[in-house]
Amino acid sequence: MNVFRLTGDLSHLAAIIILLLKIWKTRSCAGISGKSQILFAVVFTSRYLDLLTSFISLYNTSMKVIYIGCAYATLYFVYMKFKATYDGNHDTFRVEFLLVPVGGLSFLVNHDFSPLEILWTFSIYLESVAILPQLFMISKTGEAETITTHYLFFLGLYRALYLFNWIWRFYFEGFFDMIAIVAGLVQTILYCDFFYLYITKVLKGKKLSLPA
């Protein structure tokens, strides 16, 4: 464990909690892409199956349980409890355009052709593009609630911090995983446009609205 990975995990946890609180407090999931939340639930489910097979640490297990629990709680909020506030008309990204290439790639490019490894690879590739429906929805509605931009900021920041974690681990442990690094780079690059708007607008007290 290093400071980048710890702050990365805490940033990820903060994002997940901010989203749950936003929906719970405002009793509305307006502006939230249910499709992205489905993809995140799939990412966690396919990546954390090793909860059943191996124990790494209390931290590792408890964080995985929290992530999976919050992911499904969010889905419950979006598609059941606060379904009336779900803006399906703007959440129209074709997720099959993500699932098919990502599914195919995880069979072609992986470290080991075993079920758990392919599922892990699939979750890594899927996570890198899972935010696209959410970013697409914001571009369609032309704006985002400020609390939603904070959610996106911490979500994007978490994988950026993981990139530093991988630099740290390569330098100090001589370890690296090309699949996770390339996917993490793609994932972080997809947030760059949002990061620019967040820093130049939201942090200056303005509302995030597009076109910029």
Partner: peptide
């Protein structure tokens, strides 16, 4: 393989 280690990451 090298990816074995990364399974300690979330």
């Amino acid at each position: 393989s090298q990816s074995r280690n990364i399974k300690d990451e979330l």
